[in-house]
């Protein structure tokens, strides 16, 4: 077993354990921290896969943005809304586990069928440095890039409209709500 294989096995084991922790832990805060661990280990794996720019983007976007957002919402909503398994349907857990094993088996079977050949020339992607990725992003994929910016703008406006106190939503049924200038 070479060193790179040992490293992959270690990081992959940590990633899998963190993924299981997201599903199994009782507190939502613990789930969010396990999710952070999972994202960080995946960023490490991206580096070993010649994708340095995406590893940095993974840390910045997921670990720095999305997990922080989820943690803020947990603090806002309240973290003690812990595990409520559907009480009237106790068979859900077994069925879900069976379906997951079936999914994993079919995916693994198709992967082992399709991938026996070694990797091709890896020097063509230049280690995934920002220069190479940016070259592809701003020449061949310019239109999807601009569409992604529009998507982010629309999502920003949508989150703003959904998240603020709805003065439009309840139409006068509330008696004498204070004017919206008192919003925090």
């Amino acid at each position: 077993m070479t060193w790179s294989m040992l490293f992959f096995v270690l990081v992959g084991a940590v990633s899998l354990a963190a993924a299981a922790g997201v599903v199994l832990s009782r507190q939502p805060v613990h789930s969010a921290l396990f999710l952070l661990t999972n994202f960080a280990t995946l960023a490490v794996l991206y580096v070993t896969l010649e994708a340095q720019f995406l590893a940095a983007a993974q840390v910045i976007i997921y670990a720095g943005g999305i997990v922080i957002l989820i943690l803020f919402v947990i603090m806002l909503i309240g973290g003690e809304t812990n595990d409520f398994v559907a009480r009237q349907r106790s068979w859900t857990r077994g069925v879900a586990l069976g379906l997951g094993i079936l999914l994993l088996a079919s995916l693994s079977y198709s992967v082992f069928q399709g991938f026996n050949q070694p990797p091709a020339d890896v020097t063509a992607i230049q280690g995934g440095i920002p220069e190479a990725v940016g070259q592809a992003l701003f020449t061949q994929y310019l239109l999807p890039f601009e569409l992604a910016s529009i998507l982010l703008l629309v999502a920003l406006l949508g989150a703003l409209v959904l998240g603020r106190h709805g003065t439009v939503a309840h139409t006068g049924s509330q008696p004498a709500s204070p004017p919206p200038s008192s919003d925090d």
Partner: peptide, 27 residues
């Protein structure tokens, strides 16, 4: 160099764990 199929198996495992989580958890 680690073969590509190992990475694919790992990602299939993480995907399956996530799918089971969506089905099992109610939060």
């Amino acid at each position: 160099m680690v073969p590509t199929s190992y990475y694919l198996i790992l990602s299939a495992m993480i995907f399956a764990i996530g799918a089971v989580g969506v089905l099992v958890r109610r939060n």
